[in-house]
């Protein structure tokens, strides 16, 4: 069967030389839209409320009439708990709580990879033989930063005029936590160092061009006003600035309201609560020189769907 694959030479596969992003923008290829589609990455230390913020922001934009795509990376869905979506629905979720102008989707590595390869090889049987090869199977499992590249490739594909068209005003990506997010951002840089020419290199180049373009991409770092998350946020923001010249916006989540000045310090509740809000203000001050975008108050709810609704309302006000 491999011999038949000599057919490959007959197949015109479009290689290399993708349009650079500047050309794309100046050509006004986005004529259908009034403004250019915005790509938004949400990151932050584990457990600070990334998913909550990403969901609330998506709902907020959708309620203002924008067409929004909210994305999470597979294989595990967090958004299913927020949008009451069936665990069985794989890549596209049933939209139960979602407004008509919003879509929620999980990108699954293997599926996006198939989509990508299909785009290049064009012919389904070729794609099939590609993925049924034991070598490929093994390789895909451990291939260095392939997963990261595939997700970034997909996220930036519309700007690079590759693959399916994406007709949204905003794509919000509920991305990895800070450490892994850096690995994600570094993957095209690493691959360009590894492979100096050819399609892989030019793909990575255009991906980076999009990621570094502040007119196209926004980065939000969600943090808590506590020592550890703030230290991690500062470390992360500094690296992002140094390596990519990217200036992310910082969101403080779960900010507690201070007591009135007449707080009774002999009361165990008030003295405890007071201490924590004083600490909170000191922590926020540490980020004075950074781009603080928003403080989201602590939501006194235990149900995640209610929390998201409340946060959406708060974002809407501000």
């Amino acid at each position: 069967m491999w011999k038949r694959c000599g057919l490959i030479s007959l197949i015109k596969v479009y290689l290399g030389e993708w349009p650079l992003i500047e050309n794309l923008l100046s050509n006004g290829n986005n004529a259908e839209h009034k403004s250019v589609m915005k790509l938004v990455f949400v990151t932050g230390k584990g457990g600070v409320g990334k998913t909550t913020f990403a969901s609330a922001q998506a709902l907020n934009l959708a309620s203002r009439g924008q067409k929004v795509l909210l994305v999470e990376f597979g294989p595990k869905s967090q958004l299913q708990y927020i949008f009451d979506i069936s665990k069985l629905a794989k890549i596209k979720y049933k939209r139960l709580r979602v407004p008509a102008s919003m879509e929620v989707v999980m990108w699954n590595f293997e599926e996006v990879l198939v989509e990508f390869i299909t785009y290049y090889l064009k012919i389904k049987t070729l794609v099939k033989s590609f993925f049924s090869s034991p070598i490929m199977k093994k390789l895909i499992k451990v291939a260095p930063s392939l997963r990261e590249l595939v997700y970034l490739g997909k996220a930036t594909s519309a700007y690079r005029k590759i693959g399916k068209d994406m007709n949204y005003d905003t794509i919000i990506i509920d991305a990895y936590s800070t450490g892994h997010f850096l690995a994600l951002m570094r993957s095209p840089v690493g691959m360009m160092k590894a492979v100096k020419k050819g399609p892989m290199n030019s793909q990575c180049k255009t991906i980076l061009e999009v990621l570094k373009n502040p007119n196209l991409v926004d980065y939000y770092v969600v943090s808590l006003a506590e020592q550890l998350p703030i230290e991690e946020t500062i470390e992360f923001v500094d690296v992002l600035k140094e390596e990519f010249k990217i200036q992310p916006k910082i969101i403080f989540n779960k900010v507690k309201e201070p007591l009135s000045k007449e707080a009774d310090q002999s009361c165990i509740f008030q003295s405890y609560y007071n201490k924590s809000t004083i600490n909170q203000d000191q922590q926020i001050k540490k980020l004075k020189k950074y781009n603080i975008n928003l403080n989201i108050p602590f939501i006194y709810e235990n149900k995640i769907t209610k929390i998201v609704d409340e946060v959406q309302a708060q974002i809407g006000i501000k």
Binding site: W2, C5, I8, L121, S129, F130, S133, G198
Partner: peptide, 22 residues
């Protein structure tokens, strides 16, 4: 040789240098 199919395909997508490194 035999692996041509897969590696050939791979190099179409990634370029020859990548496959060499691999």
């Amino acid at each position: 040789k035999g692996a041509q199919g897969v590696l050939g395909l791979l190099s179409k997508v990634t370029g020859q240098q990548f496959v060499e490194e691999l």
